[in-house]
Design a protein around this nucleic acid. Structure first.
Length: 275
DNA sequence: CGATTCCCCTGATAGC
DNA sequence: TGCTATCAGGGGAATC
């Protein structure tokens, strides 16, 4: 599922390949994916030239050279953003298509979305700012250890829930939360404020490490994730603990356990990650 | 503040 | 073999 490394991988390629293109048409067959509505989004963006793509947490942001409208795109679990030629074969589950043109060059940006949870939302500068400001700091950018520690010390809930809370830290999802906790040898249900300062430091570094590793491998394609060219990432080949509940701990060979924390599948080594 | 549940959706998988 | 019930999951809303 697209988390920070996956969305960032997509963003980087979209920015590089589609900046400068102008939106000439917008197609959609699933109105609920378009906010406020297909017609409004269409009228707002047709004719606009793409300035670039930004990312905030798991949100992809399309910026234009003129006006105060941006597109806020969330891929949720099964979203894909694909750069295609018009003549390219259909991509299954495509529900939104942006037609693009730069000089004589034509392209399509296709939003495929199997479970239809993702969306494209047109927002003005002020709305964008409001939404973005509700997200926590970026773990690979402006999150400092001091803020990390302060956040953990203020919470009496399971550390894994904290890591997944987008208003506390933006962009960490289930895969990287599981792997970071394994790396730091912390039980996912440990009450955040009870973690020792020493382990907090290790966890801070672990979060950074797994996210960077995810980026280096261009994301994890254990389910439906594909990059902007339709190519799988490779981080799934390097999962430490995520979805490893049929195997044994790489450190101590104990059988990996699977539980639910906050309703999400959670994996840990009962020997290495004690409460 | 936090916990819990529901909802959205559809392919994969388990169970019969 | 083939059908049906269950599950997964990001995030927002509603409820306690």
């Amino acid at each position: 599922m697209p988390e920070l490394p996956e969305v960032e991988t997509i963003r980087f390629d979209l920015d590089r390949y589609l900046s400068g293109y102008t939106i000439t048409d917008l197609w959609n067959d699933t109105p609920k994916m378009m906010r406020p509505s297909y017609e409004e989004v269409r009228d707002l963006i047709i004719g606009l030239q793409i300035k670039g793509f930004r990312r905030r947490g798991k949100n992809l942001i399309v910026e234009f050279t003129k006006g105060k409208i941006s597109l806020l795109i969330h891929l949720k679990m099964t979203g894909r953003m694909l750069i295609r030629e018009k003549k390219d074969p259909e991509d299954r589950w495509t529900h939104v298509v942006f037609s693009l043109k730069k000089g004589e060059e034509e392209k399509e940006l296709r939003f495929a979305n199997q479970r239809k949870f993702g969306y494209v939302r047109a927002v003005n500068t002020q709305e964008l700012e409001e939404i973005i400001s509700k997200l926590g700091p970026e773990p690979l950018d402006d999150l400092t250890y001091e803020v990390f520690e302060k956040t953990l010390l203020s919470k009496k809930i399971a550390i894994k829930k904290i890591l997944l809370d987008q208003s506390l830290f933006a962009g960490i999802g289930n895969i990287y939360a599981n792997d970071a906790l394994f790396l730091a040898k912390i039980h996912p249900e440990t009450i955040a404020k009870d973690i020792s300062k020493k382990k907090m430091r290790v966890l801070f570094k672990s979060v950074e490490e797994v996210l960077k590793k995810g980026l280096a491998y261009r994301g994890a394609s254990d389910d439906s994730y594909l990059d902007a060219f339709g190519i799988k990432g490779k981080y799934q080949e390097h999962f430490l603990i995520y979805r490893k509940d049929k195997t044994f701990c790489p450190r101590c060979n104990t059988k990996i356990k699977r539980i639910k924390v906050g309703g999400r599948g959670t994996f840990y080594c009962p020997s290495c990650q004690k409460k």
